[in-house]
Design a protein around this nucleic acid. Sequence first.
DNA 1: AGTAGTCTACCGACCGCCCGGTAGGTTGGC
DNA 2: GCCAACCTACCGGGCGGTCGGTAGACTACT
Lengths: 220, 220
Amino acid sequence: MTALDNAALRAVATAANGEQDRRAEIYRSAARIFHRKGYHATSINDIAAAVGLTKAGLYYYIKGKQDLLFAIMGFAMDQLDEQVIEPARRVQDPQARLETIVARHARLITQDSSALTILVNELEGLLPDDRADIISRQRDYVDFIADTLAALRDEGKVVGLDPTVGAFSLVGMILWISRWYRTDGRLDGDEVVAAVTRMAISAVLSRGDYTSAGNPEETG
Amino acid sequence: MTALDNAALRAVATAANGEQDRRAEIYRSAARIFHRKGYHATSINDIAAAVGLTKAGLYYYIKGKQDLLFAIMGFAMDQLDEQVIEPARRVQDPQARLETIVARHARLITQDSSALTILVNELEGLLPDDRADIISRQRDYVDFIADTLAALRDEGKVVGLDPTVGAFSLVGMILWISRWYRTDGRLDGDEVVAAVTRMAISAVLSRGDYTSAGNPEETG
DNA sequence: AGTAGTCTACCGACCGCCCGGTAGGTTGGC
DNA sequence: GCCAACCTACCGGGCGGTCGGTAGACTACT
C-alpha cells in the first residue's frame, strides 16, 4: 500500500466512515452491556467507559439513554426482518417456510443474542411511542408465523393447534436459547439450531396416533 | 363503615394474623410491580405507595430491596417445588410425568405469573450468594426435566433429542406464556395449558416418519 | 511558509433529581 | 406506661444530562 493509498483511505475513513464506526462501536458495546446487566441497571457511565470515553464525550454521539435503547431495538428488529422474515417470505411451501423461520431466528441468536434479547426484555424502558412501534413490528412477526401455521393446517399437516398459541410457543422456545446457549458449551451453534428446529417442527406437526399417557389429575 | 366496624376489623387483623397478612400483601404487591416495571425500575416508594405506607413505614416490614426480591424468588421457587416437582416425582411413567410437569408449570403461570416471571428475569438484581442459591435450584429443575426426557429416550419414545436441549426448550415454551397470555383473552387458562402441554409432548416424542420439508439453504 | 480561523471530537465540572436507607419521633390500643 | 406500627425529615450518593471549554487537525488567506 502506497502512501497515497493510505492517505486516501484515511481521508475516506475519517471523513465518511470514521464517525459511523465509532457510533457502531458504541451501539455494539451498549447492546452487550444492556444484555448482561439490563437496561435500568446500566449507567451511561458504564457504556462510556466501555468505549473509552467520558460521559460527556459519549453524548457527542448519542441523544440520550432511551434513544440508544430504541436504536438497538430497531437494529434487532431490522435484523429479524432482513435475515428471517424476508428470506422466509420467499419460501412457498409452508413447512419449509417454518423451518426457515425457526432455523434462521435461532441462528441469529446463537451468533449474537445481545440486541435480539434486549428487543424482548427491555420494552418497558422505551418511551410510549417507541414502544408502540416495536410492539407493532413484533406482532407482525408473530402473525407471520401464525399465518404459516394456518397454511400448514389448511394442508392437513397441523391439526387441532391454535396458530396463535403455536406461534407464541415456538417464539418462546427460540428466544429462550439466549438464556442457556453458551458458545463454549457441549454443542456448537449449528447443532443447537438443528435440534431446536427439529423440535419446533415436531411440536406443530400432528401425529395421527397421538394419545396422552394418561394423566387424569391434569386432564380431568 | 362505623368506628366500631373499623376497630373490630383492625383488632382481628392485628391480633391474629395482622402482621403476617400485611407482610404477605407487601410481597404480593412488590411481586406485581416488579413484574410490571422490572426490579430496577421499581422504587421502594412505588411499593410503599401500593400498600398505603410511606417508605419508612415499609421498612418496618422489610430489610431492604434486595431481600424483598430474594424473598419473592424464593417463594416462586417454593411454588415450583411444591406444585410441580413434588407432584411430578410421584408419577412413575415418564411421559405422564412430563405431562404433569408441563401442565402444572403452565397452570401456575396462567394463574399468577408475577413471582415465577421475576424468578427468571431478575436474577442479576440479587446478591451473588442469593443468586447462586436460586440458580442452583433452577438447575435442579431443568435436570429433573432432562432426566425425564432421558427416561423417555430409554423407552424409545424419544429419539435423537438431546435431553438438556429438550428440557431448556420446553421451559422456554412454558415461561413465555406469561408474556402473551391474557386473562381476558380469546382462550381461557385451561385451554392454554392444554394446548401448550400437547405441543410440548409432541415436540419431544419422535415421529418415525419425520422428514424435513426440504430446505437446502438451511440444512446444507 | 506562516498564520489566523474553523470544526470535530472530545473532557472536567457541574446541575437537579431521585434513589435506598435511616434516625428519631408520634400515636393509638393494650 | 409501653410497645407495635407507623410517620416526617433527612442523608450520602449516583443518576441522566448539560455547559463551557479546548487540543489538534485541517483550511484559507496572505
